[in-house]
Every structure is written in C-alpha cells, then in structure tokens.
C-alpha cells in the first residue's frame, strides 16, 4: 500500500511574531522553521503502519511550499520515509488551494492511506485533512489518538470535549494525528545519511483558486500588565473581592 504523509514547514512554536512588510503575513527574518509538530506524529504513524503491513508498502512525504520546505521533507526522510515530493509554490494559498494540490498529487501517486497533522501551527486551521478527504472521496477521521488498521477497515479513537469517540471507518482514508497517538522516533545517524540519497521530486503545484483571502494581519491588543496583589495568603481576600466586584466572574 502507498501511504502519503502531508507535511508542512512552519515557524517554530517559540517564534515571536512580527508583521511582515506586506501587512498580511509574518516577517520571516530571524524565524526558525521546523516540521509542523503534529506532522511528526503523522510521519511516525505512517512508518509504524508500513512496518506492520509489510515491505512492499511505501511512505511518501508530500509538501506544498517553497524551496526551504525541503528541510522538513528531509527530516521525515531521515525518520524513515521512502521518498518526498515538493509541490513548489512561492505564493500564499488558502487552505482550499493547498488541499487541492495535495489531493491531486495523492491521487496521481495512488495513495490509499493519508496522514496529516491535526493542525498546522502557523494558520491553525485544522482543515487540510478533511478537505483532501472530501476532494478525493476518502473517509476521514480527525484528531486521532489511537489507530488500528485492518484490511479495509479502520478503528480510531479521537479526542473530543469530555472524552474520546471510537470511530469505525473504511479505507481509503485520511487520518489527522494528535499528540498522544505515538512517540515520534528520532532520526538515527544512519537515517540522516541515507536520507541524503533519497529523492525529493520537485514539481509545480497545480493551479487552484483561492476561496478565501487574507486582507491584513495584526497583533492582538497588548494587555495591560496586571496587578500583583501580594506575596502570600494575606492577599487572598483582596483577590476574591476583585474577582467578584471588578471582574464579576464569581
């Protein structure tokens, strides 16, 4: 079976956001980019699935982005993925435009199982996996923390408010991964060396329309630094009074 993993290359979560010159995106100066943290769970689960179902299966990393995104593809290859595809795009696309190009590539590669992260930590949409599934007519289970795949059937546990849902579905399918699903492996030295020899195919991302458009980016209003009411329990009565009378939250 061919397994696709969609990987996005994103600013490190510790990034201090500054607005870029276009007023619509962040200033990339000084920003460290990393593989999207949730996508590491996706890569790991794809590798585990391959190990379970046997050697004729293949794990293909697909990324839409500019040249620098190759770093994240390399990282996934070093973890053990078989090959990478970079769909080149230097411009901003909306989620639909990204999903469209990824879905086309997944189709032409003939992948029946697709892993995405539950969310990219840049735009925080949590949407690409579902869009890909609908565009391809695949089943989809999101925010998965446990997964069992049988021949044509899958059982997944997904995290929701107040508990976990056990979901049954069929292949072909898209799974979006959440922390807790697995422990992503570290790339071994050997993995890193062999990754250098694996191919990253590059091709332009297929055209797509943007159904939504960013007009501007801005910073949240800065909060007034609050009051430190004291250093021990003698400050408690005042705190409770403020919560009641000023904040009115009690």
């Amino acid at each position: 079976m061919k397994i696709a993993v969609c990987v996005s290359h994103v600013p490190d979560t510790a990034t201090k956001v500054k607005i870029g010159e276009d007023g619509k995106s962040i200033d990339p100066n000084g920003v460290t980019y990393v593989i999207n943290p949730y996508d590491e769970y996706a890569v790991e689960e794809a590798l585990k699935t391959k190990e379970k179902i046997g050697d004729d299966s293949e794990v293909i990393i697909i990324t839409l982005g500019s040249d620098i995104s190759k770093e994240s593809i390399r990282k996934a290859l070093a973890m053990g993925a078989d090959k990478g595809v970079l769909l080149k795009e230097d411009n901003q696309r909306d989620s639909f435009g990204i999903a469209k190009a990824l879905a086309e590539e997944i189709k032409s590669q003939g992948c029946e199982l697709v892993f995405c992260g539950k969310q990219s930590v840049d735009y925080d949409n949590s949407i690409i996996g579902q869009l890909i599934a609908e565009l391809l007519g695949y089943s989809c289970v999101t925010v998965v923390v446990e997964l069992t795949i049988d021949v044509n059937k899958l059982t997944a546990e997904r995290e929701i408010e107040g508990g976990k849902e056990i979901v049954e579905s069929e292949l072909p399918a898209v799974i979006t991964t959440q922390k807790g699903l697995n422990e992503p492996r570290y790339a071994s030295l050997k993995g890193i060396m062999t990754a250098k020899k694996k191919t990253i195919e590059e091709k332009p991302a297929v055209d797509s329309i943007n159904l939504t458009e960013v007009l501007r980016m801005h910073l949240p209003p800065s909060k007034q630094t609050g009051r430190i009411l004291g250093t021990d329990k003698s400050a408690v009565p005042e705190l409770v009074k403020l919560l009641r009378e000023e904040a009115k939250v009690l």
Partner: peptide
C-alpha cells in the same frame, strides 16, 4: 493565527 500571537482579517 500562530496560536493567538497574531490575528488575520479574512474575506
């Protein structure tokens, strides 16, 4: 976006 470190206006 960026976990609330910024906001975008979108249409």
């Amino acid at each position: 976006v960026y976990a609330g470190k910024a906001l975008v206006d979108v249409k």
